[in-house]
Nucleic acid binder design. Structure first.
Lengths: 211, 211
DNA sequence: TCACAATAAGTGACTAAATCACTTATTGAC
DNA sequence: GTCAATAAGTGATTTAGTCACTTATTGTGA
C-alpha cells in the first residue's frame, strides 16, 4: 500500500483503526503487520500522533536492531572490514563521480567538523557521500549499513579518539583525488585514513589484533 | 531473554501464553514484540508447533524484506557493487586464511556444481566461504547480505545464464590463489570471474550499463 | 506385532469490544 | 493577543474467548 500510494519518508499512514477496516481485520492484527515494518525502519510510530513512513522504505541493506553489541573486540573487526571494503569504493568514486557527486562530497567534508548531524542525516557523512559518488546506490547503502554497526561506539570514537583536524585534512586529500579522477590515490588515501583511525583506536584498547 | 538463555537457531521459545504471563502482558502485546523479532529473522513462527530461534540472532547485517525488487536494472547494479567489493575481500582471504578456512573453501567450491543447497545453507556458497576465509566475520556477513539482495534474480542467473563448468573452473583458480597466499591473484581472479558473469548477464538484458 | 486412523493436548492466529495514554488543533477566557 | 482548558484523534494495551494447525498418544484392526 505504501508503494502503491507512492509514500515517502515523513508521510503519514492511515490510522490503525482505518487500516483495520480497509483490510477487514482487527486492530491487533494490523498492529502485528505494522510492527514488522517498524522493525526494518519502514515505518515509525508516534504515540498519539500517527504512524509515519521512515527511511527504511528505500534501504535494502540494514543493521539488525535486535543483535546486541556486547563484544568489545568487534570495534576493531569493524574497522578491519572498512579498511578492506572502502578503499576500492573510493577508487570507484574517483572513476565514476559526477560534478554533483563532487559538490556533495565537498560539502560533507566541510560538515565533518561538526559531526553531530552525521547521525541524523547519513548522507552528510563523509564516507557515505564518498560511496555515493561511485554512482552505485548499493555501494552507498553498504557503507551506510556498516557505519550503523556499533553506531554508539563509532560516535564515541569520533568524539574521543580521533583528531578532528587530521580527519578533515585526510578527507580533503581524498576529495582532491576524487576530483582529479585518480582511483589509485583515492584508494590509497582512504586506506591510510582508516588505518590511522584503527591504530589510534587499537592503542587505546591496549591490544593489537593480529587478524 | 534469548541471549540470557543462550538459545541457538532451531531452539524453541516458550509459548506465547507463557511469555505473556512471564512478562505480565497479554498475548497480543507479546505477539507484537515477536513480530518485530520475526521481521529481522531472529525468530520464526510455526503455526501449531511453536516459535523458534532463527539465523538472524547472530547476523548483524541483513536485507530489508519489506523492499520490493521491482527495478530490473538493479541486477546489474548489484553485480557492479560485487565487482568493487569482493576482489579486495578475496585478497584479504588470501592473506589471512587458515587451513580450516581453506578446507571449507575447497568444499564449497565442489558444492558449487549442485547449487540447490546454497540458498538454504549460505555458508556453503562459494563467495560466502571466500569472505569467511578473511577471518573477519563482518566481511562474511556483508557478502552474505549482498547475495540475498535480489536473491530470486540471482538464483535465476545461476540456473540460466552462467556456465556451470566455467564457474567451477574460476572458483578452483581462486582457491589456488588463496591457498598460495597470493592476494593480488585472488583479487584479480575474483574480479574477472564476476566481470564474466556481468557480461553474460548484460548481454541477455540487451543493454550495457555504462555506470 | 505392526500399521494406521482417531484423539487430545498444545500451539500460533485472530476476533471483539473496550479502556488508557498521548498528541494536537481548537476554543474561549483573560 | 496570549495561554490555559477542551475535545477529538491517535497509538497502546487489555480481556476473554474462538479458530486453525501440529504433534504425540492411544487404541483399533489386520
Amino acid at each position: 500500500m505504501i508503494e502503491a500510494a507512492g509514500l515517502e519518508p515523513g508521510d503519514a499512514l492511515a490510522s490503525s483503526r482505518e487500516l483495520a477496516k480497509r483490510f477487514e481485520v482487527t486492530t491487533p492484527t494490523i498492529r502485528e503487520a505494522l510492527r514488522r515494518l517498524e522493525a526494518t525502519d519502514v515505518i515509525r510510530f508516534r504515540h498519539g500522533s500517527g504512524t509515519y513512513v521512515s527511511g527504511g522504505v528505500n534501504r535494502r541493506l540494514l543493521v539488525n536492531p535486535h543483535v546486541s553489541e556486547s563484544r568489545s573486540e568487534s570495534v576493531l573487526e569493524l574497522l578491519d572490514a572498512r579498511i578492506v571494503l572502502e578503499p576500492p569504493v573510493a577508487a570507484a568514486a574517483a572513476a565514476q563521480r559526477t560534478d554533483d557527486d563532487l559538490a556533495a562530497l565537498t560539502m560533507s567534508a566541510d560538515n565533518a567538523l561538526k559531526p553531530q548531524y552525521a547521525d541524523e542525516r547519513p548522507e552528510l557523512h563523509f564516507h557515505v557521500a564518498l560511496a555515493g559518488a561511485s554512482g552505485n546506490l548499493l555501494l552507498r547503502e553498504t557503507v551506510e549499513a556498516l557505519l550503523q554497526v556499533r553506531a554508539r561506539d563509532q560516535i564515541e570514537i569520533r568524539h574521543r579518539y580521533t583528531d578532528r583536524d587530521r580527519d578533515h585534512a585526510d578527507h580533503l586529500r581524498i576529495v582532491e583525488a576524487v576530483r582529479d579522477g585518480d582511483p589509485d590515490a583515492a584508494a590509497a588515501l582512504t586506506r591510510e585514513h582508516l588505518l590511522a583511525i584503527r591504530e589510534a583506536l587499537a592503542a587505546t584498547l591496549g591490544t593489537e589484533q593480529p587478524r
